[in-house]
């Protein structure tokens, strides 16, 4: 203990020791924040669009006379979610809820979760399709840039070594014990990070965009195969919703991890690119 105190730089008044290093490239940082904004708007305006017909089906079509696998509605007993035939009471949150002024509404998702906060399908669609362009174009730009600056190959692609069950198991155990690297190891994504980022960038976001396009009647004429690969329009709409839910789950876990790993340092590294590392035993230099 005493030795550590003695060797600490006298000039550094900050409680965090260590040094600032370059962590995230400018392309990564711009894409991160543009996507964060776009996904935020898309999720909430998407819930508004869902409110216009709060039921999901499998197959090529689906309307009121058909059987949905998921439905959010209300009856005399209040708001509920019906999932695969089971009625889950959700009164006050989903299906029936009160707004800030105490007025009751029977839309599926409550005003605090939708854009706009009042019911407007045309408003939700306007936000959704404008930011769908933002999300799609920025994803394409990020993927191209990251291919050329080798971000994908160097930082995101898991190595064979990392994919071994023992390594993944060790990383899960470290996460479970909230043991996060502080030194040079923190400059590399761990395998769970890599897998979740790769899953979002290469699977979830493309699936969101493609299932969205698969619901478009004009795309249905332009690229009939697109709706086919998702097994029909009603299925594409269901997959769009499930992928959105997974994306929301990713964001929740991502934010929790940022808080646990040190929000100031993590957020700074995504804004200015600078990240503070605390040298650990075994680090070079």
């Amino acid at each position: 203990m005493a030795a550590t105190t003695l060797t600490a730089p006298v000039a550094d008044p900050a409680p965090e020791r260590g040094r600032l290093v370059k962590r995230h490239r400018i392309a990564t940082r711009i894409w991160h924040w543009v996507s964060a904004l776009a996904v935020f708007v898309l999720l909430m305006s998407g819930l508004m669009i869902f409110n216009a017909h709060p039921a999901l089906y499998w197959g090529k079509y689906g309307a009121n006379a058909d059987t949905p696998w998921l439905m959010i509605n209300s009856d005399a007993n209040g708001g509920f979610v019906r999932l695969a035939g089971y009625r889950i009471p959700t009164d006050g949150v989903l299906g029936r809820w009160a707004d800030g002024d105490g007025n009751m509404h029977t839309n599926a998702f409550p005003g605090w979760a939708t854009i706009p906060s009042y019911y407007s399908l045309s408003g939700g669609r306007r936000w959704h399709f404008a930011f769908a362009w933002v999300l799609s174009l920025s994803l394409i730009a990020f993927l191209l840039t990251s291919l050329f600056n080798r971000h994908i190959k160097r930082d995101l692609a898991p190595t064979l070594e990392e994919l071994k069950p023992a390594h993944i198991g060790q990383d899960i155990a470290d996460h479970a014990r909230l043991r996060f690297p502080k030194g040079e190891a923190a400059l590399r994504y761990n395998i769970l990070q890599k897998l979740s980022y790769v899953g979002v960038i290469f699977v979830l976001l493309p699936v969101m965009i493609l299932t969205g396009l698969a619901m478009s009647p004009a795309m249905n004429a332009a690229w009939p195969w697109l709706t086919e690969i998702f097994a029909g329009r009603a299925s594409a709409r269901s997959i769009h919703f499930i992928a959105a839910a997974l994306l929301a789950l990713f964001i929740l876990v991502h934010l929790i991890m940022v808080v646990l790993a040190g929000p100031f340092n993590e957020i700074r590294s995504m804004i200015t690119g600078r990240f503070r590392i605390v040298p650990q035993p075994g680090d070079k230099a």
Partner: peptide, 9 residues
């Protein structure tokens, strides 16, 4: 297929 703006078809 008839696609309504509301989401049903």
């Amino acid at each position: 297929r008839h696609d309504c703006v509301e989401g049903w078809s």
